[in-house]
Amino acid sequence: MLQFMFRRLIGAVITLFFIITLTFVLMSAIPGDPFTSDARVPEQVLDNLRDHYGLNDPIMVQYFKYLKGALFLDFGPSIKWDNQTVNELIATGFPVSAILGIQALAIAIFFGILLGIIAAFNHNKSFDYMAMIIAILGLSVPSFIFATILINFFAIKLQWFPVATWGTWQHSILPSIALAVAPMAYIARLTRSSILEVLSMDYIQTALAKGVTGYRFIIVHVLRNALIPVVTILGPITATILTGSFVIEQIFGIPGLGKYFVEGISDRDYPLILGTSFFYSAILVFFVILVDIAYGVIDPRIKLIKGRD
């Protein structure tokens, strides 16, 4: 187990290094800088500003400065947000995004699996078709359209929920749902097809021949096996939710990390971009490792853990 963790940790560091480098390269390849838009500012002032933020340094120096920042987890002050460091911005934005993301993930997993189960056990009946139509819609309708529909219906017409912004728990419901729809649909489809496959397996016949029924049959013999592929896609699903949150936070005006990230890009707030992309990547890498561990626990044929012979 330790050895496995160690290997994964090294892998994670390498991955993060590449992401930082790539982000930096892409960022510097885009023409312009954070102060380009401020047209009327005298050239001398601009130059002073650039000097202040180290933007006049040779590119390699800038790169190593950022690498050092990433190493010590200190990305320096933000350019756009006065008097705030990138770390402070992440610290304010992340809890909001985390609540949103975790709620969305929970909704997606719970309802996705539930929908998949119901569809599979009603195979080729009307409920199955209905569930799968919902799933296809959920996958093909972009989340911003879905978000707009939700706002229109539940916030404006029915007035059950606030339209936008953040604050109470009610504020978080519509954006969480909007964010959860696509991954939920994906999980539902995968769960359904996986259950159908498991149901056609020989060992299911064996279980039936033993007289296994009901709850025990569904949970121990069917789901335990059918959910293995579902667990493996939780990594990519987390990525979908992370990137989805950029859009959703913008639409609902939520002061989360995604909002800082998107605004950081349009403002060319270099330290903020690097800091947030590093942070997002780190979370994703962490989740992927977590999923791998879970995978090894749920499927005994995968052996990460030495000596479990």
Partner: peptide
């Protein structure tokens, strides 16, 4: 077929 008639996760 004994290869496929046992539950792999039990």
């Amino acid at each position: 077929d004994p290869m496929s008639s046992l539950n792999p996760t039990m």
